[in-house]
Design a protein around this nucleic acid. Sequence first.
DNA 1: CGAAATCTTGAGTATAATCAAAAACGGTGG
DNA 2: CCACCGTTTTTGATTATACTCAAGATTTCG
Lengths: 248, 248
Amino acid sequence: MHSPFRPDYNPLIRKLESIFTLTADERQALENLPMQITVIEENQDIVREGDRPSRCCLILSGFTCTYKVTAQGKRQIVAFNIAGDVPDLQSLHLKILDNSVGTISRCSVGFITHEALRDICTRYPRIAAAFWRGTLVDGAIFREWMTSIGQREAYNRLAHLLCEMLVRLTAVGLVQDHSCDLPITQSELGDALGITTVHVNRVLQQLRTDGLIELKGTRLNIPDWEKLKQVGEFNPMYLHLEDLQAVA
Amino acid sequence: MHSPFRPDYNPLIRKLESIFTLTADERQALENLPMQITVIEENQDIVREGDRPSRCCLILSGFTCTYKVTAQGKRQIVAFNIAGDVPDLQSLHLKILDNSVGTISRCSVGFITHEALRDICTRYPRIAAAFWRGTLVDGAIFREWMTSIGQREAYNRLAHLLCEMLVRLTAVGLVQDHSCDLPITQSELGDALGITTVHVNRVLQQLRTDGLIELKGTRLNIPDWEKLKQVGEFNPMYLHLEDLQAVA
DNA sequence: CGAAATCTTGAGTATAATCAAAAACGGTGG
DNA sequence: CCACCGTTTTTGATTATACTCAAGATTTCG
């Protein structure tokens, strides 16, 4: 579908194209967006709470998480970030970061200066609107997670999270035959769901014995997507994907 | 401080003025922003999940909440909205609403068409940026709530929420002498905190006997602000208020 | 192969849920 | 002003989901 001559196709452009058709000018501006590309090993912080960044990070490959740590030292993962995400885009308008972003797996990350982002937003209002839209979708995902953590039991909560990851990974082309790479440890799942590692383990086993998932190492397979969606009470509407039927 | 000749001072203008100094033009445009003002009784939905609104609502007075309902019929309140908030501003960029907004108390609400909002955003980029910023702060509050629900125990969680409400109400001038009107029922607090009404009641009593709060009817008083902040592990940084020392 | 990280299992405990009902409150109307 | 109604708050007893602590098994990777 995308040009086979661009193996390192910029996932940001892909994401914007899923929202609206880019003009040649817009596309050119995005391709010329200066970006410092870096590989970061797993379990490294990219930015930390309290930072005053002068650039944003675009995830090109790998998994990162957005998290906060309470005064008591407990970690809440508030988002998993995948290719095409800009987890700290908010720093463009909010000086001080109120959360950290760290890698879960080895990642390729592109750093884009605020200056370059402001420039492209000024010159291309539709791109600015798409960025704004992206942060609003992030907010929608936060609301859904909050609902899951506050109101669903661990079993359904975990099913819901797996549904979401599968749909989002599908949208960026990282799912084949209901299977994907999911390099997230049970400890990280626990920090995202607000339950302990031990409990994640028990609930995962229940999902496995119920035939809803197969998870070995970092490989996730979904043998019964309909059932998983049902258990997770999953309605992908909140992801605000334009091309929903293609992924869910 | 504000002109005594404008008793119904628009809280949106007040909010934007707390972020940056409005030019005469910007101020004029905001004052001329066409707005249909309506009074809505308590416990009424303003917008519902699934709606495709063509306008946004600005809370002029009273309390509303943003909420979602799970397939099992459980409600998660993901935000309390007060004067100056535009709880459905996201509908400007996301066609379908993924949450409902309902009144908690009787409210005065101003409806502003998307058209009018788009127009003012196009003509005044700083106002557009301020709106974007506002939705980003909402996201920051979602993250903090998620952290609270996922990682803090009910006692600290409730203290944290009360701290946040007090600071936000202070920022819009609704707190005097550590006291404010808080017309939120224990049932609503429970739906926001992810605990049952019964448990809210027991935890509230603990906070009372510990001398951290006084809450009778809709009147909240904070006799020991420092202690409440400590128990709630409250750091107002995530609210991204420009004038923090004035309120916290 | 060996060390570190991750996953798994078990037993006992605690925070919070559930169920049920009584008390208090707020507003209304006679 | 008081009786009455629905709502909200409070209390008690029991139960359950999930936590803690601890240790063993498995996997990963150098």
